[in-house]
C-alpha cells in the first residue's frame, strides 16, 4: 500500500521561500494564496532567542478534519493518502478552512492578478473552477499521477515529485511513500528525531518535522500566546 508523506528537516530550512514561490508557479495560485509557505517563528526573550523557519502546508492527515466537516464530499482522501478537493462539487462554505488546524486552506471569491489585469501567463493559467471554492496543497497530485503512470517514483524523479520538494535549496524537504521502508522519506523519518505538529489532535498528519535532539537542554522560555 502506498501512503505519501513529507519530511521537513527544520535543521536545514532557512526560510528562503523558494518552495513557496515554486508552489505558486507549479500551481498557478493567485496573489496572496500560498498553498505552502514557510513560517518565521521566534521564541524566547532577548538575548535568549530562537528563530525557527517552519514550512507548512496541507498535512494530508490520516483523519482529516477538513474532510469530516465538508458538507459536500468535495474533500476526499485517496487510498494513497492524498487529500483532494473536487472543485466542481465544493460550494465554498469554507467550513474546511476553519477546520484545518494547519491553516492550509484558502478560499478566494474573485479572480485576482498580480498587477490587477491578468498578464499573459496568468491569463493562460487562469482556472475559473478555483474561484469561490476551497483550495490547498495537493502534494502536486497531477505530477504524481502523471509521473507514476510513466513508471517514475515520487520523491525520486522530479517529474513525479511535488514542486516544493524539487525546488528546496537546502534539501530540507523529502517526499515519498512512507509505507515503503526503503523510500527516502521513510529513511529520513526513521533516521532522525521527529515530531508531527498538533499530534494531540489525533488526526495523523503526514508531514514529519525532523529536528536534532541535541538542543533539548537549551532552555528557551516559551512565548506567551
Amino acid at each position: 500500500m502506498t501512503r505519501y508523506a513529507m519530511a521537513v528537516d527544520l535543521n536545514r530550512c532557512v526560510g528562503c521561500q523558494t518552495c513557496t514561490a515554486a508552489c505558486k508557479h507549479a500551481n498557478a495560485t493567485p496573489p496572496g494564496v500560498q498553498w505552502r509557505r514557510v513560517l518565521d517563528l521566534e521564541f524566547g526573550t532577548y538575548p535568549d532567542v530562537a528563530r525557527v523557519f517552519v514550512p507548512t502546508a496541507c498535512q494530508h492527515c490520516d483523519d482529516p478534519p477538513c474532510m469530516d466537516v465538508c458538507p459536500t464530499q468535495a474533500t476526499k482522501k485517496r487510498p494513497d493518502g492524498i487529500v483532494t478537493i473536487d472543485y466542481d462539487v465544493c460550494i465554498g462554505c469554507a467550513y474546511c478552512v476553519v477546520a484545518c488546524p494547519y491553516d492550509a486552506r484558502t478560499k478566494v471569491t474573485k479572480p485576482a492578478f498580480a498587477y490587477g489585469t491578468p498578464m499573459q501567463n496568468e491569463a493562460k493559467r487562469f482556472d475559473d473552477a478555483r474561484i469561490g471554492v476551497a483550495t490547498k496543497c495537493t502534494f502536486c497530485v497531477e505530477r504524481i499521477d502523471d509521473g507514476t503512470a510513466k513508471g517514475l517514483t515520487p520523491g525520486v524523479d522530479p517529474d513525479a515529485t511535488p514542486a516544493c520538494v524539487n525546488s528546496c535549496i537546502a534539501k530540507a524537504l523529502t517526499f515519498g511513500d512512507i509505507d515503503d521502508p526503503q523510500s527516502d522519506v521513510s529513511k529520513a523519518v526513521a533516521g532522525n528525531a521527529h515530531f508531527r505538529m498538533h499530534e494531540e489532535l489525533r488526526i495523523g498528519p503526514r508531514v514529519y518535522y525532523l529536528y536534532d535532539a541535541t538542543r533539548e537542554d537549551t532552555p528557551i522560555v516559551e512565548e506567551a500566546m
Binding site: V69, C70, G92, Y95
Partner: peptide, 22 residues
C-alpha cells in the same frame, strides 16, 4: 451569501455521515 458557489448550495446535503453542516 457567504458561499463561494451559492448556485451549488444543494450540495450541502451530501455528507450527513460526518458533516454537521449537512
Amino acid at each position: 451569501h457567504e458561499l463561494g458557489r451559492p448556485a451549488r448550495a444543494l450540495n450541502v446535503f451530501r455528507h450527513a455521515k460526518t458533516s454537521w453542516m449537512s
